[in-house]
Simulated scan of single mutants.
Amino acid sequence: MSIKVGDKLPDATFMEMTEDGPAPCTTADVFGGKTVALFAVPGAFTPTCSAKHLPGFVEKLDDLKGKGVDDVVCTSVNDVFVMGAWGKSADADGKVRMLADGNGTFAKALGLEMDGSGFGMGQRSQRYSMIVKDGVVSELNVEQGGEFKVSSADYMLGQL
């Protein structure tokens, strides 16, 4: 069963690239006491994710913060090195927190995993976005199939 509006995020540990190298961070660290715009992509460096999804949040960062968002977070079932490199290449470094869900445990705990085996990608996260206030989901936008509509930064701005 999938997470829904009003639910508390499950406890999970991500990996994040820092100046000192890979470091763990928990859902409590990332979402506690803050309003966070979270979005998830099926894979770093994939076409829609790289051309539209991440760049949209980088571009709209100031608008999101102007509407009360403390942090913007991207997660994907990729390793911390890939997420760090993708953030740098997309000019997201220092703007969007790039959190690796390397084993897909967060995606699975949310009930938002998908099977990308048909594309040689294995188990991944669905494409979605959510607004999280102090660890509780206040808005949830899950894409259907291969669409990119409701998980965009522009769509989220309309919800704030």
Rank of each mutant, 00 (worst) to 15 (best):
M1P: 15
M1A: 13
I3C: 03
K4A: 14
V5N: 09
D7E: 14
L9D: 01
L9Y: 00
P10G: 03
P10E: 10
D11W: 03
D11I: 06
A12H: 09
T13Y: 03
P22K: 02
P22H: 01
A23G: 14
T26I: 12
D29A: 06
V30A: 00
G33R: 01
G33H: 11
V41K: 02
P42S: 03
P42G: 07
G43V: 05
F45M: 12
T46S: 14
C49M: 08
S50G: 14
A51V: 13
K52I: 11
H53V: 00
H53Q: 11
P55A: 09
P55H: 11
V58A: 05
E59P: 01
E59G: 06
L61Q: 15
D63K: 12
L64V: 07
G66C: 12
G66T: 13
K67H: 14
K67P: 10
V69S: 02
D71F: 07
D71K: 08
V72F: 07
V73R: 01
C74E: 03
T75D: 09
S76Q: 10
V77F: 00
N78D: 13
N78Q: 06
V80M: 00
F81L: 04
F81P: 02
V82K: 06
K88T: 11
K88P: 04
A90C: 10
D91G: 10
A92N: 03
G94H: 08
K95G: 04
V96R: 01
R97W: 01
R97I: 14
M98G: 07
L99Y: 02
A100V: 09
D101L: 02
D101F: 00
D101Q: 08
D101K: 00
G102A: 11
G104H: 03
A107F: 02
A109G: 13
A109F: 11
L112M: 08
L112V: 07
D115C: 12
G116K: 03
S117P: 13
G118W: 05
G118R: 13
F119S: 12
G122Y: 13
G122I: 14
Q123H: 08
R124E: 14
R124Q: 14
S125T: 09
S125Y: 01
R127T: 14
R127H: 12
S129T: 08
M130N: 01
I131D: 02
I131F: 01
V132Q: 02
K133I: 10
V136D: 10
E139H: 15
E139F: 04
N141C: 14
V142M: 07
V142Q: 07
E143T: 08
Q144S: 13
Q144E: 11
E147Q: 13
E147C: 10
K149C: 11
V150M: 08
S151I: 06
S151M: 04
S152Q: 07
S152V: 04
A153S: 15
G158L: 09
Q159W: 04
L160A: 09
